[in-house]
Design a binder for these strands. Structure first.
Length: 594
RNA sequence: GGGGGUGUAGCUCAGUUGGUUAGAGCGAUCGCCUGUCACGCGAUAGGUCGAGGGUUCGAGUCCCUUCACUCCCGCCA
């Protein structure tokens, strides 16, 4: 028998009655009755109630032990009387009568309670992450993460994918996020970059003829954090396939997502076949390229209404004349909502930095009328036209935003979420997946007015590839797609451009000449010149998948050792200063501020 | 880089209009308690009210500066 335990703390049942056993674990909770002490012993597997009476010589010692002390207990399994059974524990039908014990690990006074459902400050949680991770919820989240990843691995292998590792020290690339850089000792003045994703490597794996690749890949981006975005590093299920079209990638990913989400969650899937929405449609209908399809609200365009003679809403009319657009959201059967609901939305929009949302409710007396602060500006006929455009009915309300396309899209996209939540239109017990397809290849940089890659410079443009018309680059669409679930972007992917001449052409549109491309993407462009297969892939974010499955809103709840918002590891004290010697060895000069 | 929120005991939080000695629950320490499972009861210790400056007879509370954490915008193909 093992020196520390014969059983774990989650497995004793009535079948073990009267056995002499040993358990090791943490003291989760004590209930001291003075002459009788209950002591809950906890490990990874569960909790077992242990009991000792004051007639025992060790009673006084055990009474004094702090919570979270690690002890080993030798004892005898006893059946609990019917009225003392704890149904909340797997081990609740029995308890262990303590015969002897041994302290394996003492504890100082705890900086935070382990046995508590209380929320507490992030800072203290991250500093004492090893204590935080003992807590039930996050402990379970991390175990879930392990199981999901193991399951994904086995599914991918079943689907014929091979797992490979790719370099962590690689070269900096000019496109995309800011790189984490690592100075090279052997090559003074030069730097490695940590990969933002193994993008080029996975394409090189295809060129190397491996056909189907995947990796649970660490990715590093030196960008600011968000609740759903770790600073520094995160993980992707990176995958790439040869001789495929877009649909082949969709099929694999859809199959995988369905089996993962069905296995690890009881929530319903709204769509068995994930709908495909074009980029331009989603921007129009939802104002975003990551729509939450659980939310039934849809955006409509009402710009033409404000060119009518019988509409006198002059503020909007003037703006429309100058090129602004008007779009809006219809809410069903909201005529009896209190004024505070409407004003609340309007005020919220103003807080978001928009000029607010105009609103009115459609009612019918002798004829169709609009009620609300701006209702009087609309004629009966114009209202009928509005109802036609948006399928609105009497009793519905409309929220309108006016401005530049991008601003209107943004505020209405957020308004969809806000109103959808307020009216409880979003069923939290569902997953709504969709594909966003037909992304534009290029877009115009708002500030510099330059043409830039809108997503990924390695994507294959749609259309006649041999005679691609580059005169209107903004019109070119790419075989570029995103997968979205409940308004969270899980991943981007693309069919790649495997034709070097075409890549040079596209890069030249974005202002990179052949020399720069050869220099910055040497590994890839060179490889594509030696017989590259058509290929494509995608890279769903592991952390976000786990967030959805665990029902967490913050990525740190599913990350074992996350950094804080300022990209600091409070437990390990990273980043930290380095010695003069190290600096010298790396040929660096540190410029001291102040 | 910008905006919002928070900061009071080890932890979670209360603290009114600026007013005497800054409170509660949990935890810790000590004592009582033989069937609890958030055990119960009693006592004790524990505070640079994030920091600095200002206004005031008087500041946890008002003002200014600053720091930390967090959420958002920018950013993240």
């Amino acid at each position: 028998m093992n020196k520390y335990r014969s059983h774990n703390c989650g497995e004793l049942t009535i079948k073990d009655k009267n056995k002499n056993i040993s358990l090791s674990g943490w003291i989760n909770k004590k209930r001291d009755h003075g002459n009788l002490l209950f002591l809950d012993l906890r490990d990874n597997y569960g909790v077992t109630q242990c009991v000792i009476e004051n007639s025992h010589e060790k009673f006084k010692e055990l009474e004094k032990l702090s919570l979270e002390t690690v002890i080993k207990i030798d004892g005898k399994v006893l059946e609990r009387s019917k009225d003392t059974i704890n149904k909340d524990l797997n081990t609740g039908e029995v308890e262990t009568s303590i015969i002897s014990y041994e302290v394996l690990g003492k504890t100082k006074e705890l900086p935070l309670p382990v046995f508590s459902d209380q929320e507490y400050a992030e800072e203290i949680r991250l500093k004492y992450r090893f204590l935080d991770l003992r807590r039930k919820k996050i402990h379970q989240n991390i175990i879930l993460r392990s199981k999901v990843i193991a399951f994904i691995r086995s599914e991918m292998q079943k689907l014929g994918f091979l797992e490979f590792q790719t370099p962590i020290l690689t070269s900096s690339s000019p496109e995309g996020a800011r790189d984490f850089l690592v100075p090279s000792r052997l090559n003074p003045g030069k730097f490695y970059a940590l990969p933002q994703a193994p993008q080029q490597f996975k394409q090189l794996i295809m060129v190397s003829g491996f056909d189907k690749y995947f990796q649970i890949a660490p990715c590093f981006r030196d960008e600011d954090a968000r609740a759903d975005r770790s600073p520094g590093e995160f993980y992707q299920l990176d995958l790439e396939m040869s001789f495929v079209e877009q649909e082949d990638v969709f099929e694999v990913v859809e199959k995988l997502m369905k089996s993962v989400f069905k296995k690890f969650s009881d929530k319903k899937m709204l769509y068995e076949k994930f709908p495909k929405i074009t980029y331009s449609d989603t921007m129009f209908k939802y104002g975003t390229d990551k729509p939450d399809l659980r939310n039934p609200l849809i955006i409509n365009d009402f710009t033409a209404i404000f060119e009518r003679e019988d509409v006198s809403f002059d503020i909007f009319k003037k703006l429309v004349k100058k090129g602004s657009i008007v779009r809006g959201i219809v809410t069903k059967k909201t005529k009896d909502k209190p004024r505070s609901f409407f004003d609340g939305i309007d005020k919220w929009a103003k807080d978001e930095g928009a000029s607010g949302l105009a609103y009115f409710t459609i009612e019918k007396e002798s004829e169709i009328k609009a009620k609300g602060p701006v209702g009087k500006f609309f004629s009966s006929d114009s209202l009928k036209e509005i109802m036609k455009i948006s399928n609105a009915e009497v009793g519905d309300s409309i929220f309108l935003a006016c401005g530049k396309v991008k601003d209107v899209e943004k505020i209405l996209s957020n308004a969809r979420d806000k109103i959808g939540n307020e009216l409880k239109l979003i069923n939290p017990d569902t997953f709504a997946f969709c594909w966003i397809v037909d992304y534009p290849m290029f877009e115009e940089d708002e500030k510099t007015k330059k043409i830039i890659f809108s997503h990924n410079p390695f994507s294959m443009p749609q259309g006649d590839v041999k005679n691609l018309d580059l005169s209107n680059p903004l019109e070119i669409k790419a075989y570029q797609y995103d997968i979205v679930c409940n308004g969270i972007e899980l991943s981007s992917g693309a069919i790649r451009n495997h034709i070097p001449e075409l890549m040079y052409k596209l890069f030249s549109v974005a202002g990179y000449n052949k020399k720069i491309v050869d220099e910055k993407f040497s590994g890839m462009i060179n490889a594509l010149s030696y017989g590259a297969p058509p290929h494509g892939g995608i890279a769903p974010g592991i952390d976000r998948i786990i967030m959805l499955l665990a029902g967490e809103k913050n990525i740190r709840e599913v990350t074992m050792f996350p950094m804080n918002q300022n990209a600091q590891d409070l437990m390990m004290n990273a980043p930290s200063e380095i010695s003069e010697e190290q600096i010298k060895e790396l040929n660096l000069l540190i410029k001291k501020n102040k």
